[in-house]
Design a protein around this nucleic acid. Structure first.
Lengths: 333, 333
DNA sequence: AAAATATGGCAACTATTTATGAAGTTTCTG
DNA sequence: CAGAAACTTCATAAATAGTTGCCATATTTT
């Protein structure tokens, strides 16, 4: 591979000038620039990005830590981040945290050790204090789908409380009063907020909270199955079920059907996230849209703005959920 | 950040010795090693991976190019690759090719320019010749889910022809004779092979091929919808539908239900890939399992073996699909 | 005491960025 | 048209943080 020396030699120009042509940080006359460019072309020269990183103390890599790489939710998120950064010529290093404190910390270490210029995190197990401490290090951190007190400029978040609220509210408006709530793991901030929204909707409508109609499970199909099994075993009375995410809703629906509950007549179901497969469930799932893809690209924009000083417009840090009406909710009769 | 010099100074040891302790490529006495290690600890020293890369000509980064980052298929694949490489302390840089020739080439360039030690590709639009040419460059390439003549040692592939065969064969065994086939884009090797398998199953059972029962569409929900719409409009007679992947099956099922076709009584459907949501469709989708996750981790193992000289057992390059029976296929009566 | 093994200290090497002061060239001004 | 000002470019050197090879020396084993 050709080096900058060979280019400078062929173009009969000094090293510094070649560097200037590449980085455009100083004026170079048209004539010289062309000489340099054609020398580069002739030698099929590509700058060694590693050497550039070492000398400039910039790796042009952004670390991205997600809970899981598979799964429709993270897919959308990573996609948003990658698209934005790729367009800016930056590289994305992806790793996972599995929603476990040790693994999340380990993943963060891993990304920092790679000299990422910034890291974008979707972490759930790690504490706010840890993140505040981490943010004092030399690698800037950005959080997706999490709001940390003390890091207002580095968080991209969704108003999960509002999401939980509109889900339940929409059921109440359809006449439902006995509403079961399948909550996500209560150590995860978004799961907590969604449940709070649910409770607010109930209390604003003067519906007493029935603790038996709340069940906590994991954010997966299996969690949905376990949840509905619990509610049915408890013989609780309910005409509608709100699930803290679409995967749970999918599992719950499968289980409901296996137990001869017709949806939406016997049971209305509402999800959260509006994942790709939501419109292909049966019945088509009514859910709360979570603009994860946009949040991902927004996190990337924030990095481009703060870390690489690129001008960015329309920066938005708080996103709002919205209701997507489909067929899984019926009027209560 | 502390450098290797400070460590050597504090440990009263030479530079070379510190390096030897880190890389373990030469013998160091227990005593010295401990002195060095405790000096590192005291200074909270972490080797600068960029400088290591420059000096050793190893970036410890592996590039991964997939068609799309979202989508259940790629999620499983990336997950397999990442898990394996992460455990080996390697970094994964992910980018996308969108199944378009230009973008795929561009993505490859992008990864090579980052000095990846190897790149793992899931490319669909680029030609075999291009890949053979590419493999002559200094960056080793590995292909997932594609077999390229001339690169036998760098391909991990699925016997798609067999997959297509067993899907159709399973329907025939249930008594179906009029079987519609929803094919994937015929410039993609796996889509071609799956269709071939279908045709072989038909001919082995002496069923005449009806061209009207074959439709080509994209590997997405929308493709499934378009396909079934076509078959219904054509008023073709068929009791079963095989879809070239699960997403198409999901779309087709949604469309079928909207047109009052009951599944599996009126229409049996079979998919391909056995994606996470397949068991949560209604009816639960019978499909052909595609071990993408394993194929991803196998590609990673191949890299560890070839590029990093790590011993690996059970290397497998050709994978076999298997039938997963669920509820979307009925006996033809 | 000789041979084998460990370690030290040094230097060259990796490919770039960036600063510096000097020198060269062009353009403008009076 | 001379001189000044502004703009370009040069050549060099230091810095980035490591790896690696070499030979000399120290320590241990035979």
């Amino acid at each position: 591979m050709a080096t900058i020396y060979e280019v400078s030699e062929l173009a009969k120009v000094s090293l510094a000038t070649v560097s200037r042509v590449m980085n455009g940080n100083a004026r170079v006359s048209e004539k010289t620039r062309n000489r340099v460019l054609s020398a580069m072309k002739e030698l099929d020269y590509r700058p060694n990005s590693i050497a550039q990183s070492l000398a400039s103390n910039r790796s042009n890599c952004i670390g991205l830590l997600v809970s899981e790489i598979h799964g429709p939710f993270f897919g959308q998120m990573m996609s948003g981040v990658e698209t934005e950064l790729r367009a800016a010529g930056k590289h994305v290093i992806i790793t996972t945290g599995h929603s476990e404190e040790d693994k999340e910390k380990d993943g963060i270490e891993f990304l920092i050790s790679r000299n990422c210029d910034a890291i974008i995190l979707h972490v759930e197990a790690v504490s706010d204090e840890y993140l505040v401490e981490l943010s004092k290090g030399k690698t800037p951190i950005y959080l997706i789908s999490r709001h940390v007190e003390g890091l207002p400029d580095n968080c991209i978040s969704l108003d999960n409380e509002l999401g939980g609220y509109i889900a339940t509210q929409s059921l109440i408006e359809k006449g439902h009063r006995n509403i079961a709530y399948l909550a996500g793991p209560q150590y995860k901030a978004d799961a907590i907020a969604r449940l709070q929204g649910h409770k607010r909707a109930l209390s604003e409508n003067n519906i007493a909270l029935n603790e038996k109609l709340i069940f906590e499970a994991e954010f997966k199909e299996q969690g949905g199955i376990a949840g509905l099994r619990y509610f049915l075993q408890e013989k609780a009375e309910f005409s509608a079920l709100v699930c803290a995410n679409d995967e749970m809703a999918s599992g719950a629906m499968t289980y409901a059907r296996e137990h001869n509950l017709h949806m939406p007549e016997d049971l209305s179901v509402i999800g959260f996230d509006n994942v790709v497969f939501a419109p292909h469930l049966y019945p088509k799932l009514t859910t709360v849209d979570n603009p994860v893809n946009k949040m991902g690209s927004m996190a990337a924009k924030l990095v481009l703005k703060d870390v690489y000083q690129q001008e960015q417009h329309n920066i938005q840090q708080l996103f709002e959920p919205s209701l997507i009406m489909r067929d899984s909710v019926a009027e209560f009769t």
